[in-house]
């Protein structure tokens, strides 16, 4: 459990981090280290250099701007969990944060690190998809903004290029009811399946619904067919049953020693149903 040799440099600004990325071959960003350090120790990854961004204060913090929550990529899970702003503006994020790992992990691991890592069993990707977060990526030629739906390209893969940095995440902040339900792997505590759901309803009619699922497949996804089946309809237990029962249609689920594909598909259906039930009281 000793990493291969690497150089280390702490950056103190986004510009410095980008400059280091540009000027060093095979450099990697180090945020909370909760995914990267284990991989280094196992020598699964052997970068020549680590650029520590945890000391860049501008990457850290939560604020509200034009009805949106702006969360710095270096904000820790714990900071999100404890934020009254988040609790008010995004019940979904507030419900998810305390379900990540344990307190120690949450104190170190970051929102941005988790999204950039794109672990198939990670929790945040589901929330980012469900709230249609905008991810701001800084690079040599300024910044670009990517919607969550375009951000994840596959297992452990995103659109962030090797010389880029995820700087902040923008989340709608009008307090839309939302919830994250997680079936924890008994060993790792990661999501066997996790579902992030937001829904509004008015006079017994469903307004907007978003349903995103992590853990079930190599990359988190939105259950669009189920969303369509619900949007605009009158709330009823039957409707929710029906929509949830198709939430896993056509999925090619992951399989491991804990949970074969068929079980993951079952969890998707059950958990989508339960999340909808909690939000829509049916």
């Amino acid at each position: 459990m000793h990493p291969a040799p690497f150089a280390y440099k702490a950056a103190h600004s986004v510009e410095e981090a980008l400059e280091l990325l540009r000027s060093h071959e095979d450099a990697k960003i180090l945020a909370g280290g909760q995914s990267l350090i284990p991989a280094l120790k196992l020598r699964l990854t052997q970068p020549a250099m680590l650029i520590d961004i945890s000391k860049i204060s501008s990457l850290r913090g939560i604020r509200r701007e034009n009805g949106k929550l702006i969360i710095g990529s270096g904000t820790t899970h714990r900071e999100i969990e404890k934020s009254s702003l988040v609790a008010e503006a995004s019940p979904l994020l507030a419900s998810l944060a305390p379900q990540i790992g344990d307190v120690q992990v949450r104190h170190r691991g970051t929102f941005g690190g988790s999204l950039a890592h794109a672990d198939p069993a990670g929790d945040w990707p589901a929330a980012a998809l469900a709230v249609d977060a905008e991810l701001v990526i800084a690079g040599a030629h300024g910044t670009r903004t990517v919607h969550a739906s375009d951000f994840f390209t596959g297992m452990l893969s995103t659109v962030i290029n090797a010389d880029e940095l995820l700087t902040e995440i923008r989340v709608p902040g009008e307090g839309t009811p939302g919830i994250y339900l997680k079936h924890r792997n008994a060993a790792s505590g990661y999501a066997t399946v996790g579902v992030a759901v937001t829904a509004t309803h008015n006079h017994g009619r469903i307004g907007t619904v978003s349903i995103a699922v992590t853990g079930a497949t190599p990359v988190a996804f939105r259950a669009s067919a189920a969303e369509h089946a619900l949007t605009g309809h009158a709330v009823s237990a039957h409707l929710l049953d029906e929509a949830a029962s198709h939430a896993a249609d056509g999925l090619e689920c992951l399989s491991d020693i804990h949970a074969p594909a068929a079980y993951r598909a079952q969890l998707v259906k059950v958990m989508v149903r339960r999340a909808l039930g909690k939000l829509l009281h049916a």
């Binding site: 196992l42 699964l44 198939p120 069993a121 596959g154 297992m155 452990l156 190599p218 992951l254 399989s255 491991d256 020693i257």
Partner: peptide, 17 residues
């Protein structure tokens, strides 16, 4: 091998990819 023993969950999707 050692990586399979600690990261078996990643292997089948990686192979497919």
């Amino acid at each position: 091998g050692p990586v399979f023993s600690i990261g078996s969950r990643f292997v089948p999707p990686a192979a497919k990819l």
